[in-house]
């Protein structure tokens, strides 16, 4: 196992390096730069700007300098927001995005997974159909519609919650709900489906035949075996949601990392694009490693190291 993890960590570093390189190439390949503006500044001023941010260095040097910075955990200064650094953005934005994301994930699991189990146990009964309907609406109506509707109802009409911004717990509710809907729907559908698979398997039938109660069967065998796809789905989901979601952060004016990332691409804020990509990429690789380790615990038969034929 230790050897396997070592292998994976090595692969992760290689992947991160490829990711950085591809992103670096892509962002320099597309038109526009950080100082492209509707009003063109005189050439001399553009030269000053380029000099200040080392954009007049040859690309390979910029690339190597950047990699050097990453190795020292210095992601560089922002071009769009002078005086601020990409490390500042992460230090400020990540806790906010992560807080919202964790709440949303807990919410979606707490509701979605039991809903999925109930659906499966009551297949094609009203419980199942209701869950399905909610889930379908959850995935079909995107957050950019849900969020303004929530805001309209609960902030403007009922005055129960503040419309937007970030600070106290009341401001967490609407964005968390809006953010939770899609994973909630996914969890409930995935759970239902894999529960149905598991329930029809012979070992469950055996367990039942041995006289185990319905509850015990469900918990001890079915859920444990059905949770695999959920775990798979959770890996990238946690990485994606904890590093921020643009639409939700934009609509609710939340100072998270998701908005920063989209702005950075819009603004061609090179260091920020790269920095946040590296941050997200590292997070994703770690999550997926954890997922694979969890596989081993869930089903000890799984051999990640490959089979000798």
């Amino acid at each position: 196992m230790a050897r396997y993890i070592l292998q994976r960590v090595f692969a992760a570093f290689v992947a991160l390096w490829i990711l950085t390189t591809v992103t670096f190439v892509l962002m320099h390949a597309i038109p526009g730069g950080p100082f492209t503006r509707e009003r063109n500044v005189p050439e001399a001023i553009m030269r000053n700007l380029d000099a200040k941010y080392h954009l007049n260095d040859p690309l390979w040097k910029q690339y190597l300098d950047y990699l050097g910075g990453v190795a020292r955990f210095d992601l560089g200064p922002s071009f769009k927001f002078p005086g601020q650094t990409v490390n500042d953005f992460i230090r400020r934005g990540f806790p906010v995005s992560a807080e919202l994301g964790i709440i949303a994930i807990i919410l979606s699991m707490a509701v979605g997974i039991p809903a999925g189990i109930i659906s499966a146990l009551r297949q094609n009964k009203w419980q199942d159909n209701t869950t399905m309907l909610v889930a379908i609406v959850g995935v079909s109506v995107p957050s950019f519609i849900i969020a303004p509707v929530l805001m309209y109802v609960f902030a403007l009409k009922l005055h129960w919650l503040p419309a937007a911004m970030w600070g106290d717990w009341k401001q967490v509710i609407m964005p968390a709900v809006a953010l939770a809907l899609l994973p909630l729907a996914t969890f409930s559908r995935l759970m239902r489906s894999s529960m149905l698979d598991v329930i029809s398997q012979d070992y469950i039938k055996t367990a039942r035949a041995k006289g185990l109660s319905e509850l015990a069967v469900t918990w001890r065998h079915a859920v444990k075996n059905a949770i695999m796809p959920i775990v798979t789905y959770l890996g990238p989901l946690i990485a994606a949601i904890l590093t921020g979601t643009f639409v939700i952060e934009q609509i609710f004016a939340i100072p998270g990392l998701g908005r920063q990332f989209v702005w950075s691409v819009n603004n061609r804020d090179y260091t920020t694009i790269l920095g946040l990509t590296v941050f997200y990429g590292a997070f994703l690789l770690i999550m997926n490693l954890i997922v694979d380790i969890i596989y081993g615990f869930l089903d000890p038969r799984i051999q990640l190291t490959g089979r000798k034929e």
Binding site: A11, A12, A15, V22, T23, G281, N288, T305, G306, R307
Partner: peptide
């Protein structure tokens, strides 16, 4: 196939996930 192939194939997936 699993093993090293799996590691490589899945890291490719991760990279594509990661690219903006």
């Amino acid at each position: 196939v699993g093993g090293r192939t799996d590691n490589v194939m899945m890291r490719i997936v991760d990279i594509i996930y990661g690219i903006p």
